[in-house]
Simulated scan of single mutants.
Amino acid sequence: MGRAFSIATVIYGLTVPVSSHAAEPTPPALAFGAIWTGHLLDNVGGGVKTGTALLSDLELTSTWTGENGWSAYGDLQAVQGRGFSGNYSGDLQMVSNIDLLTGTHLGELWLRKSALADQLTTTVGLINLNDVFDVQDAGALFLNASHGFGYDFAQSGASAKPLPALGLIEEWHVSETLRLRLGVFDAVGGDPDRPGSFVAVKLRRSEGLQYQFEVESDFKGGYVKIGHWENTVAADMIDESGQTRRPSGTYGQVLVTLIPKGEEEDVGLRGWLRAGVADDKLFSVGDYLGGGLIYNGPLHGRDQDTIGVAIASVGFSRAYRATHEMATRETSLEITYAYEVKPGVVLQPDVQYIVHPSGDLALHNALVLGLNCRISLGSP
C-alpha cells in the first residue's frame, strides 16, 4: 500500500497543474465535535427471546482544514454494544446501527488533498469505506443498519465503523452533476483476531485488497449511484466443492424528491430505492432490496422533524440454503419519527417488524420498539 501511494503521489504531482482560478487561501482551522447516540430497544415478541437493552456510542471528532487544499480528520468511538440482534431479535441485518463491538476504537484517521478547485480529491489513511461509498442520504434517518450500508456489501468484511481499514480514495468531480470515485482498501477492516482493540492495521496476503468504483449522477432533487466492488484474493465457495473465486458485488441506488417543500430541492417528501447483488456462491446473502420514504416537517411549526417508513430485504443464496433449512428472505419494516427537542438534541421513537429473522424457521417474526436519543456538539 505504501509503495502504491508513493507512486500515485509522484504521478499526481507531475500531472496535475495548479489551477489559475483556485479559491483564495483560508487560514488553517481546527474544529472539534462530540456526538452521543443511545438506542433503547425492546424486543416485545418473536425472535430469540423478549428483552430490553440500552446501547450507546460516543464519538469524538476532530477536523483540520489547512491551506492549499489540505485537510485531515480523526475520530474516537466509545461503544457499549449489547449484541441485541444476536441475543434478542435474531435478525441478520441488525435492528441497531450502533450494535457494534464494545470498546474504545480509533474510528478514522485520514489526510486529504484537494486540487483543481476541488475537482480532484485524494484521501489516504484509516478510512470508514461507508462514509464515501454506498452512502444513502435518506436511509441514514433509520436505526436499522441495512439502511445505511446495504447488507450485500457490508457482509464482504469491508471497513465500517468502528473498524476502519487502511485505504486510498480518488474522487473526481467530472462536472457539477457527475462524480467518479475509486478506492482501494485492505479487504478486511480491523484485525479479526483482536476485534476489541483500539486500533488494528494488519495487512495479510491471504486477505488481499478490495477495490471499489462508484459513479454518481446528480439531478434536481436527487441522484443516481452505481457501484462495484471486488477482492483480489479468491475465497472458498460455500458449497464445499473446494473451488474458489474472487468475491465481488454490484449495487445501485436512486434518491428522488417527490414533493418539494418550499424552494429547497432536498426538503419535503423524498423516496429512495437501493438494490445490490453479491456472489451467491461465496456469501450467505445473494441479493438485497430496500427503500423508503421520508418527509421533512410533517407537523405545522416542526420543520426540523422528519418522519419515515422503510423496508429492507435480503435474499439468502441457493448455495447457503442448500445446507440450511430456512426461509428464502429476511425482511424488515421500519417506521420512525425524529423529533428535534432543541438544536443538537433529537429524540426518535422507532418501530421495526422483522419477518423470518435470519431466515430461521424456528424463530417467530420479531417486533422491536425503540427510542433513539442523539446529542451533538460542535463540528460533526
Rank of each mutant, 00 (worst) to 15 (best):
S71A: 15
L55G: 04
G222M: 10
K202T: 15
G107P: 04
H300L: 08
W229P: 02
G33K: 05
R245K: 14
A29D: 02
S175N: 08
G125D: 13
V184P: 01
V124S: 13
T15D: 03
Y151D: 00
G290W: 09
L269E: 06
L289N: 10
W70A: 15
W70P: 06
V95L: 04
V18S: 00
V44Y: 01
R194L: 10
I307V: 04
V351L: 12
L369P: 05
D303Q: 06
L120F: 13
A187D: 08
S313W: 07
A200S: 11
R246T: 14
W64T: 11
A140C: 01
A115R: 11
S248Q: 11
D350V: 15
G227D: 05
F153A: 02
S317T: 08
T331R: 11
E216P: 12
Q352M: 10
T123Y: 15
L367C: 02
I375R: 02
I127V: 14
T102D: 15
K202Y: 03
T63A: 13
G51C: 10
G252Q: 02
Y151R: 00
V309I: 03
S379V: 14
Y88V: 00
D57F: 12
V132A: 07
D280Y: 09
F316T: 09
L180A: 10
W70T: 14
L273D: 12
Y353E: 09
H147I: 00
L100C: 08
L101S: 15
S317G: 06
L116Y: 06
